[in-house]
């Protein structure tokens, strides 16, 4: 965490020592992470996705919108490894380019939810009392709506396009992040280092952001990576219902929606985009779960 060194960066000699200690900490966490198969498989999948998304135009053999009337609904072949759709577009190229949409929505919405949710949650958990009570009732109420339903409603308000999907999902997932941040802050608040900081004369702002927040990062990180998976699923669902990405965008959910009518004759039109979704979502879920094992040692500890 950057704040670890915050108070000390001015000093060259001590900042050297601190970086060493920090390095050791990260090295230790990385060692645990490396030994966690789940985490490593998840990380490998996520990295693959990111690389594919970055170099998508280079990997895709065809353009996403290039139609070919002579090659409509073709089964997978060497030319078209995933087959073609009803307009003769190459499904492989569309699946590859679709990774950009999925990651864009996944990351974009979680960055938004983290920004608001972390602050609300940590402040609420630390402050306690009336502030906490009111904020949490509002969050409870927001969580009473199933995420998809709330996102759909927001999409109706905002109109269907990709950036609005991000806004809607950020709105929907903020309470989930806030809840995790709150419970982390709540348990940190009972740690004596907080009282120690108060008795040192620190202000509430300093304590929340410099003392408590860095200690809440682990569960937030876990929740965030799992929520990326949720958001990618939600994007697929919204697009499937026609309220997310709009044609001709190569969104995986949208591809499945349009392939639905040809399910019996050309199942590859739903199978490959479907596999892509599953692959991406499993990656983030495994990464999140692996991170939980490493960062939150409450479960699975062995006494010796």
């Amino acid at each position: 965490m950057a704040t670890d060194a915050g108070t000390e960066t001015k000093r060259a000699d001590s900042s050297f020592r601190i970086t060493t200690a920090q390095k050791e900490r990260y090295a230790r966490l990385w060692r645990q992470f490396r030994h966690n198969t789940k985490a490593m498989v998840g990380l490998a999948i996520v990295l693959t996705l990111v690389v594919v998304a970055l170099f998508a135009p280079l990997i895709a053999p065809y353009s996403v919108s290039e139609t070919n009337i002579d090659a409509r609904s073709e089964a997978p072949s060497l030319q078209h490894p995933f087959g073609t759709d009803e307009l003769g577009r190459d499904i492989f190229s569309r699946v590859v380019l679709g990774s950009r949409i999925s990651l864009y929505v996944g990351f974009g919405s979680i960055v938004g939810a983290l920004a608001v949710g972390t602050t609300v949650g940590v402040v609420s958990g630390y402050a306690g009392g009336m502030v906490d009570e009111v904020l949490m009732r509002v969050m409870d109420a927001a969580m009473a709506f199933p995420p998809i339903l709330l996102a759909l409603t927001v999409m109706v308000v905002l109109g269907p396009n990709l950036n609005n999907v991000i806004l809607a999902l950020a709105f929907v997932y903020t309470p989930y992040i806030a809840r995790v941040g709150r419970s982390a802050a709540l348990s940190e608040r009972n740690e004596e280092y907080v009282e120690s900081a108060v008795s040192r004369g620190e202000s509430d702002g300093y304590i929340v952001f410099k003392e408590v927040l860095p200690n809440c990062m682990a569960p937030l990180l876990v929740q965030a990576s799992i929520n990326v998976a949720f958001a990618m699923l939600a994007e697929a669902s919204l697009s499937f219902l026609g309220l997310g990405a709009q044609p001709p965008k190569p969104s995986w959910g949208l591809m499945i929606n349009s392939g639905r009518g040809f399910m019996q004759t050309a199942p590859w039109m739903i199978i490959f985009p479907g596999l892509a979704i599953a692959f991406a979502v499993i990656g983030f879920n495994m990464l999140g779960d692996g991170l939980r094992d490493v960062l939150d040692p409450k479960v699975d500890t062995v006494e010796s």
Partner: peptide
């Protein structure tokens, strides 16, 4: 807060009273 320098506290559980994310020097 400005009087805090005059009165300090030592807690029961040093594992909890020292912020785990900060160095001792910090």
């Amino acid at each position: 807060r400005s009087l805090r320098a005059e009165m300090q506290m030592i807690f029961q559980d040093p594992g909890s009273s020292l912020n785990p994310r900060k160095t001792v020097g910090g």
